[in-house]
Amino acid sequence: MNVFRLAGDMTHLLSIIILLLKIRATKSCTGISLKTQELYVIVFLTRYLDLFTKYISFYNTTMKLVFLGTSISIVWYMRYHKVVKQTYNKDQDTFRHYFLAIPCFLLALLIHHEFTVIEVLWTFSIYLEAVAILPQLVLLQRSRNIDNLTGNYVFLLGAYRALYLVNWVYRYFTENHLVRWIPWLSGLVQTTLYADFFYYYIKSWKNNEKLQLPA
């Protein structure tokens, strides 16, 4: 464990906590893409299959349970909570997220480290996480005004994988140059997808104005 990875995990955890707080405190999920949240549940379920078979550390197991629990509860709130589900922008959140999941799965069948169920599904989760934010970014462009909590949520979500990139650079130089192409390239794609959001987020923060993405 290095400081960059810990910072990345904490940033990721903070983003999820901010989203849960927004939903529970305001009883609203306006501006949040249910499609992206559902993709994240799939990412965690397919990535943490070895949760009960492989013990890495107390921290690792705890965080996996927290990520699984919070992401599933967010989807539950948006789908079934009587008040929250009324605030879901169903007609704007129209991204066909299966168009994202299927190519990722096919790619995982083609390009992976080893052809086992655990490894292929883990690889699928890495590819899927890279593109899972797309429905959310599309929804933000359609939303007239983005509330601060939603903006912060997306920013932290993008920042966590950027910190993971730094963690991988650090591990490359400190762990006898172990190469991990799959997460590296996927993480690079994932972080790049946030590039224009980062630009508008930082600009709105500097000029102290409302965050607005160009349509």
Partner: peptide, 10 residues
């Protein structure tokens, strides 16, 4: 490259 990846990250 059958490097068994030890998935020690989240």
């Amino acid at each position: 490259r059958g490097q068994p990846q030890s998935h020690d990250e989240l």
